[in-house]
């Protein structure tokens, strides 16, 4: 099996992967980073969103082997020095979750939205750009509020 070397949350990691190993499988099963979820496994729900070289992607539809040499950030990599990332804090404060299953993907997508659109990103843009993330509990209202509030503090 080929050995894969890449950076995950700032740390150099390596492991053996099959050709078919998905990035989400490598993260969860080999590195134990289970914050990245698998919801639909058909590239629709967005619970598996991580950043690869700074871009939000669905890790259930990316081969681990194709990430050789890349820099991957997962939900575990957002908090720094024991303090929640402003977007995580905002989801907590605005009650942007109910069961929490979609939350890691929502937060990774939200951070990407703010990076591309800036701190003052408007509600319409947030709603449009969250189209690849499904929540089946809260109805999105508080999620959008959380993204706006988190954006201001990023």
């Amino acid at each position: 099996m080929p050995t894969l070397s890449l950076k995950v949350n700032g740390k150099a990691v390596s492991g053996e992967v099959e050709g078919r190993t998905l990035l989400v499988e490598f993260l969860r099963d080999q590195l134990g980073l289970t914050g990245t979820h698998v919801g639909c496994d058909t590239s629709q729900c967005g619970t598996c969103v991580v950043h690869v070289d700074g871009k939000a992607v669905k890790s259930c539809t990316v081969l681990a082997a194709s990430c050789a040499g890349a820099s991957v950030t997962t939900i575990e990599g957002l908090a720094a020095n024991g303090k929640l990332h402003p977007m995580q804090q905002a989801f907590h404060e605005e009650h942007g979750l109910q069961c929490g299953f979609c939350t890691p993907g929502m937060i990774m997508a939200a951070v990407d939205i703010v990076k591309r659109n800036g701190k003052k990103v408007d509600e319409e843009t947030i709603r449009r750009e969250l189209s690849g993330n499904l929540c089946r509990c809260t109805g999105y209202h508080n999620i959008v509020k959380a993204v706006q509030s988190g954006a201001a503090n990023m």
Partner: peptide, 9 residues
């Protein structure tokens, strides 16, 4: 096309 994550790939 698709959503943001799909457009990134």
């Amino acid at each position: 096309i698709g959503g943001v994550h799909v457009r990134h790939k």
